[in-house]
Amino acid sequence: MTLSVTFLGTSGAVPTTERNPSSVFVRRNGDAFLFDAGEATQRQMMRFNTGFDVSDVFVTHGHGDHVFGLPGLVHTWDFNDRTDPLTIHVPRGLGAGVEDLVFSVGGDVGYPVRVSEVSAGETVLDFPEFEVRAFTTDHRTASVGYALVEDDRKGRFDRDRAEELGVPVGPKFSKLHDGQPVELDDGTVVRPEQVVGDPRPGRKLVYTGDTRPHDAVVSAAEDADLLIHDATFANDASERAAETGHSTAGEAADVASRAGARALALTHVSSRYAGDAREISEGASGFGGDAFVAHDGLEYEVPFPDDE
């Protein structure tokens, strides 16, 4: 069951020749989402072959390096005769501004586009098997982060035990795994708990957008399988990070450690580290899990917790 991330843009506010402004593409099986859409996001999608079948865009805040890619993307979809609806989720109070941005030049498009305002603590998207939740972040403007959280999975089916109990191979296996008892030919009833283990956790993917370290991010990222966190600056620029509403690599690592996250992607890298992000990487050395500096085009497959 696929849950993959493609980093389309990993720069700070100023792009570089190696890094585009912020955007992350996420695919979960047949569903595709964008988290933020900086300038030229559509070109990055073509460059890294993500596909264009996005149903929802989740915007963390209204700064240009996170939204200036929306007009081109929305109108390109129109040129390509898109008919499927699109929902753009934005922090509360930003809806009118995003609508103006998208439609001020080029007019309406030939498919439904809805801009939906969201608040921290809200379930933004509720699909079978997973949901996307908004949480509080701390930036210089109205902002939220987003967590994609999968439902628990079924426990493991113990085929050997089922056969020992006399369950014939076939449909009764599926019934038991689905939580239904089955009756054998001799009248014996086998219950699911006899052959199915405890439910297993699904995966959690958390994206902060731009933020200072915050307890709400720690809570949202609890036991995350991948935390994508603002790491605009190296640790020696902590004052600058605080002034601008961003985090250092060390602060991101501390959030990930407190949350018990399994992996940490450091992103929104300032242009001052163009071409060499070793200071960012080294700054997160205190995190005990898998920490890495994301780069444009990097693909990451989010593992299940019990794959370790």
Results as ranks from 00 to 15, higher is better:
192 P>W: 08
215 D>M: 12
247 S>P: 04
256 A>L: 03
198 D>K: 15
205 L>Y: 11
255 V>I: 08
205 L>M: 06
235 N>D: 15
196 V>S: 11
252 A>F: 02
200 R>M: 13
257 S>Q: 14
230 D>E: 03
223 D>L: 04
201 P>D: 03
241 A>Q: 01
227 L>C: 09
193 E>F: 15
256 A>H: 03
212 R>Y: 09
225 D>R: 10
204 K>Q: 04
193 E>A: 15
214 H>Q: 02
236 D>W: 13
234 A>L: 02
234 A>R: 13
247 S>W: 08
222 E>T: 15
220 A>N: 12
248 T>Q: 05
228 I>Q: 05
248 T>G: 02
233 F>L: 15
208 T>C: 00
192 P>D: 01
228 I>Y: 10
227 L>R: 14
256 A>N: 02
214 H>Y: 05
213 P>Q: 09
229 H>N: 13
237 A>V: 00
213 P>N: 10
217 V>P: 14
249 A>S: 15
243 E>D: 14
225 D>G: 05
217 V>I: 14
255 V>E: 09
202 G>C: 05
238 S>Y: 06
191 R>A: 03
252 A>P: 00
210 D>G: 08
202 G>T: 07
240 R>F: 01
257 S>L: 07
191 R>F: 11
191 R>W: 11
206 V>A: 07
211 T>N: 09
255 V>G: 02
250 G>L: 09
202 G>M: 04
222 E>L: 10
248 T>C: 05
237 A>I: 00
200 R>N: 08
252 A>V: 01
230 D>H: 14
191 R>D: 01
233 F>T: 02
215 D>N: 12
221 A>W: 02
202 G>R: 10
251 E>A: 09
208 T>V: 00
255 V>M: 10
211 T>S: 15
209 G>A: 05
230 D>G: 07
215 D>Q: 14
230 D>S: 03
219 S>R: 11
246 H>Y: 01
215 D>H: 14
230 D>K: 10
194 Q>R: 10
214 H>I: 00
254 D>G: 00
211 T>Q: 06
209 G>D: 07
244 T>Y: 06
256 A>T: 11
241 A>W: 02
238 S>M: 07
229 H>T: 05
212 R>F: 07
209 G>L: 04
222 E>G: 06
206 V>Y: 01
258 R>T: 03
220 A>D: 08
203 R>Y: 02
211 T>I: 01
227 L>I: 09
221 A>P: 03
213 P>E: 11
211 T>G: 04
247 S>A: 15
209 G>F: 06
240 R>S: 01
237 A>G: 01
221 A>S: 10
229 H>W: 07
252 A>Q: 03
195 V>C: 05
225 D>F: 04
228 I>T: 02
194 Q>V: 02
232 T>A: 13
229 H>A: 15
214 H>M: 02
220 A>I: 06
219 S>Q: 12
235 N>R: 06
242 A>C: 01
248 T>I: 11
203 R>F: 04
253 A>K: 07
195 V>E: 03
249 A>N: 11
232 T>L: 11
244 T>E: 05
255 V>K: 07
218 V>P: 10
246 H>V: 00
207 Y>E: 02
222 E>C: 06
193 E>D: 15
251 E>M: 06
253 A>Y: 07
191 R>E: 05
248 T>A: 04
249 A>D: 11
228 I>K: 13
202 G>K: 08
217 V>M: 09
224 A>R: 14
210 D>F: 12
251 E>G: 04
192 P>E: 00
192 P>K: 10
226 L>E: 12
202 G>S: 10
249 A>C: 12
